[in-house]
Amino acid sequence: MNQKEQTEAPLIHSGEWKIHYDYAVGETATQFFLRLRDQGKIAGKKCPSCQGVLVPPRAFCERCFVQTEEWVDVGPEGTIEAFTIVYEPFDGLPEPPYAVAYVTLDGATTAMANFVRALDLSDPEVAARQLAVGNRVEAVFADAREGAVTDFYYRLM
């Protein structure tokens, strides 16, 4: 067959990956999620070398390269470090609009991302000014918690 005989568009064969994983959360994040679920508190782990309080907690400090040991409660208030507001739909992701922010909770060294709710997002410029870096938020805990990052969200103060 030469190319000129081909009258139809090249064929497309479809395929899908449906692969289930059971991710080990690890002891450190497990403790974080259980404390979040059962007591409505956010905790970080302190690096014994640089004294940084890592939130989300990590079992190690990647800069000092030592294991972390001590738990420290942080927040529930904190300061916005970075944010965005999503206005266009992405494949397989939530319906827009929604806002996410990285927040350094009081007492923490690193920032933790979560959704920002209870905020009118209809005007991007107005909402962006409210979410400006340096503004203060508080963590609000869901009534029914399952031990996941979405057990809390941020709300402007």
Binding site: Y21, V86, L93, P94, V100, A113, F115, V149
Partner: peptide, 9 residues
């Protein structure tokens, strides 16, 4: 899968 994927990053 724990911290950022659930936040639609």
């Amino acid at each position: 899968p724990f911290w950022l994927r659930p936040l639609a990053f």
